[in-house]
Design a protein around this nucleic acid. Structure first.
Lengths: 200, 200
DNA sequence: CCTACCGATCGGTAGG
DNA sequence: CCTACCGATCGGTAGG
């Protein structure tokens, strides 16, 4: 059974991701749950606390999915392909919450905002590090590991804007193709990673 | 001499891109111009009209920069590289206005919103078309021209979130690297496009 | 969880 | 372009 707090966060995630945090009122959230506006405050502290909870949970989900792969075994290309799959899977498993984490975290107050900024930097760091390792080992081509990581993360995060679970492409297909596109551009040899035939 | 309307749109672009449309009040805009809130309405019709003007101008700037290249001469890879440069240049020339166009257009009312959605689809279509042409001609590899275009546009649009004109990388460097990353992944041969040595 | 309410702020207007 | 104002809505609270 979902708790009322979870229900509130689910509704808030849907509304925040659809119209944005600032354009969503507490009464909008209450209405979707057949409640009066003030009744929400029996379960939450504030609007910002709801945003913070959603953002922190999503941040942890992304980290838990990607960090072990970055620090695990395999070539840089293999790990990057698995990291891309992991990231896309988190988006696909909860598009709304992922969107709130990726695009609405800036509405947090100063302290929480800075904490999330640090978490985001650390997350980007996993990608930078694996890319840098691959370049240092001569396994990956490319001049700038930081810019390559920004390129990849931007490309993947765009997904949160348009992914639909009832769409024609599943997360595995999307992730495989994104990995082909990214690794094909970085890789020296013709067929990169561990995909189902590489970059045809 | 910039007109008052241009000044209002410049200030609004900066605030909308920084905090978002919904979180920016007309009094915020007025304060930045040393005006009273109500005085703005001597120059504008409504808050939404300001947003609409910014969005429509930026949409036209992107279209004017990219469309002629898409429909012009050259191989698909050559055109894509030039389109990437053109797109990055528009972002670099007016990051705030580009950000408002890319991320705040959803706050427009229904009619204007739909018009912008169409313009965005047409713009994405230029990239899809050139990618599809390259694939049909056997010049570019890759399975899905639509997904490849979404990948590229997402990667480029992320730029609007972090580009700074006083940063270490200029638009030409960023665009060249982005083109290397994207074309390297699509291209069959080792060295793509017309860049300064391709994907090292 | 509801009713009823608080002060603050919102986009926008009248009249000068 | 300012002063003064409008009705509506905001996040949040008191008291039950």
């Amino acid at each position: 059974m979902r708790t009322r707090r979870e229900q509130i966060e689910d509704v808030a995630s849907a509304l925040f991701s659809d119209r944005g945090y600032a354009a969503t009122s507490m009464r909008d959230i209450a209405r979707a749950l057949d409640l009066q506006g003030g009744s929400l405050y029996a379960h939450i502290l504030s609007k910002e606390a709801v945003l913070s909870s959603i953002v922190q949970q999503a941040a942890e989900r992304f980290r838990a999915a990607v960090e072990p792969i970055a620090h695990g075994p395999g070539t840089a290309a293999e790990r990057l392909r698995r990291m891309i799959h992991a990231h896309v899977d988190v988006v696909a498993a909860g598009r709304e919450r992922a969107t709130v984490f990726l695009f609405e975290w800036t509405f947090l107050g100063p302290e929480r905002r800075e904490a999330v900024a640090s978490a985001r930097d650390a997350y980007e760091g996993y990608f930078r590090q694996v890319i840098a390792e691959g370049m240092a080992a001569g396994e990956l081509a490319g001049r700038d590991h930081k810019l390559a990581a920004a390129f990849l993360l931007s490309a993947m995060n765009g997904l949160a804007h348009w992914y639909r679970s009832d769409g024609p492409l599943g997360p595995a297909e999307i992730a495989d193709y994104y990995a082909d596109l990214f690794l094909g551009g970085l890789h020296r040899e013709a067929v990169p990673g561990t995909g189902s035939g590489g970059n045809r």
